[in-house]
């Protein structure tokens, strides 16, 4: 019994498609090499968690470098940390946490069939992301002006101890890689928003919204650790 293209064994809400195929009007595109749509959702979610695990390990390498150099240069790191703008860092933390809330709410609204509310929440998330990047830009700009830059670009005369350029190298690497993830997350959420507006998602089928949300939460997670480690030594 091969799945028939016209009739799905799971009811009219589940449309059999080829891998990666789409279904109209918020129906579930069931890729028929999966046993059931349930298995498909499970596979997608599990795949995303595995991907998040690779992201965590990607950042872990930087956190390990940070740990080593903080152990070697504890006083300098404390000194340099106090040279960062704590209020901007704190505001950015609050902004990202709020965006995490709105993206969780967006998934909630898609699942309860309120696509309009979901769209609104996703737009708020994207605005938060923009705000985060703008604030980050001001922080970076300040450092470029002062010369608190990594490695051989370090020209700041205020702190001249060994290890200060290393702190700023790690600062730029961690926040830079994180900002890159913010940009990627924004692209993903923009794509998701577009398809929410187009009505592709519904309480029956919301997997991409959920996966996009998971990615965004990861961006938040990384920042939750970066904030105390960089700003609050």
């Amino acid at each position: 019994m091969q799945p028939d293209a016209n009739a799905s064994p799971f009811g009219p809400n589940y449309v059999p498609v080829a891998p990666g195929g789409r279904a109209p009007g918020g129906k579930y595109p069931w890729a028929t090499h999966f046993g059931t749509p349930n298995v498909q959702t499970y596979a997608a979610r599990f795949g995303m968690w595995l991907f998040l695990s690779t992201e965590v390990l990607l950042f872990a390498g930087l956190f390990v470098s940070y740990a080593v150099y903080r152990y070697l240069y504890p006083q300098t790191f404390a000194l340099c940390s106090r040279h960062l703008d704590l209020s901007l860092g704190t505001i950015n933390t609050l902004v990202l946490i709020t965006s995490s809330l709105t993206v969780a709410l967006a998934i909630h609204f898609v699942r309860t069939g309120k696509n309009g509310m979901a769209t609104g929440m996703l737009i708020v998330t994207l605005l938060c992301a923009c705000a985060f990047l703008v604030i980050k830009y001001f922080e970076y700009h300040h450092k470029f002006e002062q010369g608190t830059l990594p490695g051989r670009f370090y020209t700041y005369s205020g702190i001249q101890t060994e290890g200060a350029p290393m702190f700023f190298a790690l600062y730029f690497l961690t926040t830079g890689l994180h900002a890159l993830h913010v940009v990627v997350g924004m692209s993903v959420l923009t794509w998701v928003t577009y398809h929410v507006v187009k009505g592709r998602f519904s309480p029956v089928y919301y997997t991409p919204v959920e996966l996009g949300g998971l990615y965004w939460h990861l961006v938040d997670l990384v920042w939750i650790f970066l904030y105390p480690l960089l700003y609050l030594i």
Binding site: L72, T76, R82, G158, I159, T161, E162
Partner: peptide, 26 residues
Amino acid sequence: PKREAPASELSHMPKHGEAPAHGAQH
């Protein structure tokens, strides 16, 4: 790799936003 100077030379820690004292120089 070279360790930083002993803690005593770096003892004055400025508050956030405050310009670091010149005592912090190596």
